[in-house]
């Protein structure tokens, strides 16, 4: 942090009430509208792995039913931030956090709140596709519903079709739903994983570099899919690919060294960033 000037947004975020956007006019233009529904309301959020602080005092409001991209150089805390949104980071022993994290008004870390029920509402798609190899395509999609006690055949069938349609996979797999999930190609497997997350109808879908292991064609399909998802779901996507962020997100947050440097409308962020660090990063001068 010492080599770069302190970001205005980081200073602004020390104020718990204010949204973590820069007061800079260009970026302020992309500020959430006052009455916009907020999916994640995060204030003064810090996270440590043992002694190492991975996130520093992050304050941000992620809008509902929009695609928010999180960018930044590797090691900047963007994946950690994403995993904190559905408490996946708890699988790493020795983490500790401070601050408040609300998802549609309910406290993610409130007393008595189960990580299990959070993850049920906030789904996640990973860098590498990870269908369950012992399950068929259909079983993969429906496993979440079955865990939640849905037994009604009609409901399951309807959700199966709907989820696969949503994930733009239905036409490709409808004739062999009983084949193993791992029999699909890489891009198809990733869409299967998206369908699996969508089947339980989460409110929010987190995506951790979902295209980093895919070829350009499969990537294009997933990006297209993200566009349709935003009509029903809040999507938060971590990506190291700035073109991808520019192409498919409404808002972009730039993280650097565990801090939220800038957050705003994607178009503004890429054309007229309010912060010199952001500008340096999006124009490819570092990271």
């Amino acid at each position: 942090m010492s080599t770069l000037p302190e970001a205005p947004s980081a200073r602004a975020s020390s104020d718990p009430i204010r949204v973590a956007t820069t007061p800079n006019s260009a970026a302020t233009a992309g500020l959430p509208v006052e009455n916009e529904e907020v999916a994640f309301d995060i204030r003064n959020f810090s996270l440590w792995y043992g002694q190492r602080q991975a996130l520093v005092d992050v304050t941000i409001k992620i809008p509902a039913r929009k695609v928010t991209a999180i960018i930044g150089p590797s090691g900047c805390g963007k994946s950690t931030f994403l995993r904190a949104l559905n408490r996946m980071h708890e699988l790493t022993p020795g983490t500790r956090l401070e601050g408040s994290l609300r998802h549609f008004g309910s406290d993610l870390y409130g007393p008595g709140v189960e990580a299990v029920s959070i993850r049920r509402r906030v789904g996640m798609v990973f860098q590498k596709s990870n269908p369950f190899p012992t399950m068929s395509i259909a079983e993969n999609v429906l496993v979440g519903l079955r865990l939640n006690g849905v037994r009604d055949k009609a409901v399951l069938q309807e959700r199966l079709e709907k989820s696969l349609h949503m994930a733009a996979l239905w036409d490709e797999v409808k004739d062999h739903l009983n084949r193993p999930g791992t029999s699909l190609s890489g891009g198809q497997q990733q869409r299967l994983c998206i369908a699996r997350s969508l089947a339980v109808q989460p409110e929010t879908l987190l995506m951790d570099e979902p295209c980093s292991a895919l070829d350009p064609l499969a990537t294009a399909k997933i990006e297209e899919l993200i566009q349709t998802l935003r009509q029903e779901y809040t999507v938060v996507i971590v990506t190291h690919n700035m073109q991808q962020a520019a192409r498919c997100s409404d808002r972009t947050a730039f993280f650097y060294m565990g801090k939220l440097i800038e957050f705003g409308n994607t178009r503004n962020m890429f054309t007229n960033p309010g912060n010199p660090q952001t500008e340096a990063y999006v124009s490819g001068r570092f990271g």
Binding site: A64, S106, E203
Partner: peptide, 18 residues
């Protein structure tokens, strides 16, 4: 807050946890 369908009942969630 948007209601999410297929949320397990409180009892079912407790049963899973138990």
């Amino acid at each position: 807050m948007a209601a999410s369908p297929y949320l397990p009942t409180e009892r079912f969630a407790r049963w899973r946890k138990a």
